[in-house]
């Protein structure tokens, strides 16, 4: 399983990459995208929207089903990946790069502490 060591992970299978300051980039893990199948649509919030940790912030539609996305941290959306509008398959082909979803300016960075490191996430997935 491809899991960048420097990222944090949520129990809803999202990755969080610190971008400097209070900003983090968010997407879904390689494991999640492989389980969901070919992604055909990503519903994202708008720039300026406030996200609340552990609340839904969008959805991904694969050829089989739609899944709700949960915010791993609280904060304001400062950037969304507009390329996913025309190329949702980037979530499958490059989940940690071109398949990123949103950049969030966190309200505070305490939420990051609650997320898992790569080893813990790996262990959680292995238990399933």
């Amino acid at each position: 399983m491809n899991l960048p060591k420097e990222f944090r992970y949520s129990d809803e299978h999202e990755w969080v990459k610190q971008e400097g300051g209070n900003k983090v980039r968010i997407g879904i893990t390689d494991f999640a995208q492989s389980e969901l199948g070919d992604i055909v649509f990503v519903e994202l919030p708008e720039v300026g929207d406030e996200l609340e940790a552990n609340s839904p912030f969008g959805s991904v539609e694969s050829v089989k089903t739609v899944s709700e996305l949960y915010a791993p941290v609280s904060g304001k959306v400062v950037e969304i990946n507009e390329d996913l509008e025309d190329s949702p398959e980037n979530v499958n082909t490059a989940p940690y790069e071109g398949g990123w979803m949103v950049v969030v300016e966190m309200t505070d960075d305490a939420g990051l502490e609650k997320l898992m490191d790569a080893d813990k996430y790996q262990a959680m997935v292995s238990e399933d």
Binding site: D11, E35, L36, N54, V66, S67, Y70, M124, D128
Partner: peptide
């Protein structure tokens, strides 16, 4: 047919009600 999973990614574990 179609389907949706609320409360986290489809087919994967989630501790949330959904």
């Amino acid at each position: 047919t179609s389907q949706v999973w609320k409360g986290g990614p489809a087919g994967l574990s989630s501790k949330r009600p959904g």
